[in-house]
Amino acid sequence: MDKTLHINYQPAQESNWTGRVSNPELDNQYWYQEIILSDLDDIGQEKIDFGLIGYACDEGVSRNLGRPGAQQGPTVLRERLSKIPIHFKQKKVADFGDLICKENDMEACQDALARTIEALISNSIFPIAIGGGHDIAYGHFKGIYNALNRNADKKIGIINFDAHFDLRPVEDKPNSGTPFNQILNEFDGVSYFAVGIQQQANTKELFDIAQKHYVPYALHDECESDEKAVEALKAKLQPFIDSNNYLYITVDLDGFSSAYAPGVSAPSPLGFDPAFFFKILSYLLSSSKVKSVDLAELNPSLDRDNQTATLAARIVDFVVENA
């Protein structure tokens, strides 16, 4: 591993993984007992199925005039995840630590994330990245793209669960609202589907940009958990799935209703619920095309009773069990 990755890097910390003491005569019962603590230098040293990597960066949210605090998201998510009972079998999960944004250098943190994601995928490890702001998506996608670059026929589809398009043009510096505009303009063979879009959270300009780039989307009122709505969205997603070789799923937690996810920079009561989300996530994972997942905008300083952090941890657990 390139040593320059360590400029803004902290290896996995045992202090993030604690939990209830269980009968030592039993097999491992909880995540904290099962997790492998690792270092980026160790990628490829042993067979790992899933790799957690933190993107501890608030700079994109601050540039976007949002409320900072998501830099602590990776740490708190691990604390909640460590206490969840495990039900997956014969899967090895490693925590590779955190990439930490220093001196407001978001671009350096994104570059380090891209190289990390590329290394994980190149070693047949399924990355689960934990933000941080949604600027995580630019670095994450760049890493996926570079890892799959050897495949001439690659077509990568991004599915974003989010209240916002995050398609803003870059005016001064990139931020948490610009990643998918950057991706669509900089990379070939990529398409983008947004799930959970709220009209009142996106300007007309953003809808026009989505139309220009042929971005399909589902409005929040299409994202209901009843069977009819779920089946309708599956039918809308299927052509997108079929037209791509690989899928990257990114989850901005502000897409959920604030009843379930209050701990985000831009909460809204009009978001979707977990029942809907897990049904669609299960459907996407069943395609066997998903190469990587991330979660963005977990802000522990704004959370209530760790509700958002617990939801985020449940998502990570679900991905490991079902991918």
Rank of each mutant, 00 (worst) to 15 (best):
Gln10Ile: 14
Gln10Glu: 14
Gln13Gly: 10
Asn16Tyr: 15
Asn16His: 13
Asn16Ile: 02
Asn23Glu: 12
Pro24Tyr: 02
Asp27Ser: 12
Asp27Asn: 12
Asn28Arg: 08
Gln33Ser: 03
Ile35Cys: 08
Ile36Thr: 07
Ser38Ala: 09
Leu40His: 00
Lys47Glu: 08
Asp49Ser: 07
Phe50Gly: 02
Asp58Arg: 00
Gly60Glu: 00
Gly66Trp: 01
Pro68Ser: 00
Ser82Thr: 01
Ile86Tyr: 11
Lys92Val: 12
Val93His: 02
Ala94Glu: 01
Ala94Asp: 01
Ile100Gly: 07
Leu113Cys: 11
Glu118Lys: 14
Ile121Trp: 14
Ile121Thr: 07
Ile130Asn: 04
Gly133Thr: 03
Asp135Tyr: 06
Gly139Tyr: 06
Asn146His: 12
Asn149Leu: 15
Arg150Asp: 14
Asn151Asp: 15
Phe161Asp: 07
Ala163Ser: 15
Asp166Gly: 09
Arg168Cys: 10
Ser176Ala: 11
Gly177Tyr: 05
Gln182Leu: 14
Leu184Thr: 01
Asp188Phe: 08
Tyr192Asn: 00
Phe193Thr: 00
Lys204Phe: 05
Tyr217Ile: 06
Cys223Pro: 14
Cys223Tyr: 04
Glu224Gln: 11
Ala229Lys: 09
Glu231Gln: 12
Ala232Ile: 08
Lys234Gln: 13
Ala235Ser: 13
Ala235Gln: 13
Ala235Val: 04
Lys236Phe: 11
Lys236Arg: 13
Ile241Glu: 10
Asp242Ile: 09
Asn244Leu: 04
Ile249Val: 15
Val251Pro: 07
Leu253Cys: 05
Pro262Met: 06
Val264Pro: 13
Ala266Asn: 10
Asp273Leu: 10
Pro274Ser: 05
Ala275Gly: 00
Ala275Pro: 05
Tyr283Leu: 07
Leu284Lys: 06
Ser286Met: 05
Ser287Met: 12
Ser288Glu: 15
Lys289Gly: 05
Val290Asn: 11
Val290Ile: 14
Ser292Leu: 04
Ser292Trp: 14
Ser292Gly: 07
Ala296Asn: 09
Leu298Lys: 03
Pro300Asn: 09
Leu302Tyr: 08
Asp303Val: 06
Asp303Ala: 05
Gln307Asn: 02
Leu311Thr: 02
Ala312Glu: 02
Arg314Val: 04
Val319Asp: 06
Asn322Met: 10
